[in-house]
């Protein structure tokens, strides 16, 4: 009996979670106007891909897709290198002021990123970088929580491994590249997924930093489209599907690592 109640709740929440997506996909396959009828329809009368064709041919959605891909991919790769190097240094080197520096960095995490946005905009404008990929990529590279997670992970790596490599004549960079990086692979995969999805879904900063239509990332382009086509429900739904789908597939493929990563962050606090 109790078991049935638990399942009823679970299935009810499942439906609530999925229903908006179901309707989104369904409406994106309708002909224009059909989603705005009374009573509302759950299924298209006849499935049409006209909205998607419209997205690709007239609204140039591939361009935004590529922008999102370039930006998210660059942030992910660069931040993995930069943060793993810093995490390695904090975990395995001794230098004066290390603890203080690390604590200082952690205390920065309380500062909301919105505080930095105005001067960052002015700075990048002055450098001529506003409305370029770099304007979105550069501020996304160094991540304090990323450094923290990698450091925690590397603390468990025995020093003897590093010493042995030293005796064999390996340089510091060789040790980082051929011992530390492979050892840290699980945490790096988790961070990569995390970073990529955050960058893909990021909205406020790309909205500020990309000032011309051709440079928009998908979420910014979609928000902009909403301003112009707010009555064109079916088209907007197709745009939403197209924005959600890549990252959703990415998540479903790699969800094991992602969920583990959140649990790790939570336990470490």
């Amino acid at each position: 009996m109790k078991k049935i109640i638990v399942y009823i709740f679970l299935i009810f929440i499942t439906i609530l979670c999925l229903a908006p997506f179901f309707w989104m996909v369904s409406a994106s396959l309708m002909v224009s106007g059909q989603a705005n009828t009374f009573p509302p329809r759950f299924f298209p009368d006849k499935i049409t891909f006209a909205q998607y064709q419209n997205l690709f041919s007239r609204l140039n959605v591939m361009n935004y897709f590529l922008n999102s891909l370039i930006v998210s991919f660059s942030i992910t790769v660069l931040s993995l290198f930069v943060n793993s190097m810093a995490g390695f240094a904090f975990a395995k080197y001794r230098f004066t002021g290390k603890k203080k520096l690390f604590k200082l960095l952690l205390s920065f995490m309380i500062i909301p990123s919105q505080v930095t946005m105005l001067p960052l905009f002015l700075m990048l404008k002055y450098m001529g970088l506003i409305n370029t990929y770099l304007a979105v990529i550069i501020p996304g590279i160094a991540s304090i929580s990323g450094i923290f997670l990698i450091r925690q992970y590397l603390l468990a790596v025995p020093d003897s491994l590093i010493e042995a490599a030293k005796i064999d004549g390996a340089s510091d960079f060789q040790i980082y590249y051929s011992i530390i990086l492979p050892l840290a692979k699980p945490i790096l995969i988790t961070l990569a997924i995390f970073t990529f999805m955050t960058a893909w879904n990021d909205f406020l900063w790309p909205l500020i930093a990309m000032t011309s239509d051709s440079m928009y990332t998908l979420p910014v382009a979609l928000a902009n489209l909403m301003g112009e086509h707010s009555l064109d429900t079916e088209l907007m739904m197709a745009g939403s599907v197209f924005t959600i789908l890549p990252v959703l597939l990415f998540f479903l493929l790699l969800q094991k690592y992602y969920i583990k990563g959140i649990m790790m962050g939570a336990i470490k606090e």
Binding site: I13, C17, P20, F203, L218, L222, M226, I259
Partner: peptide, 17 residues
Amino acid sequence: LVYFIPVVTSLVAVSIV
């Protein structure tokens, strides 16, 4: 997994829906 799906989707797209 299912309960986590809304988390990973774009806030902009979801707001539009």
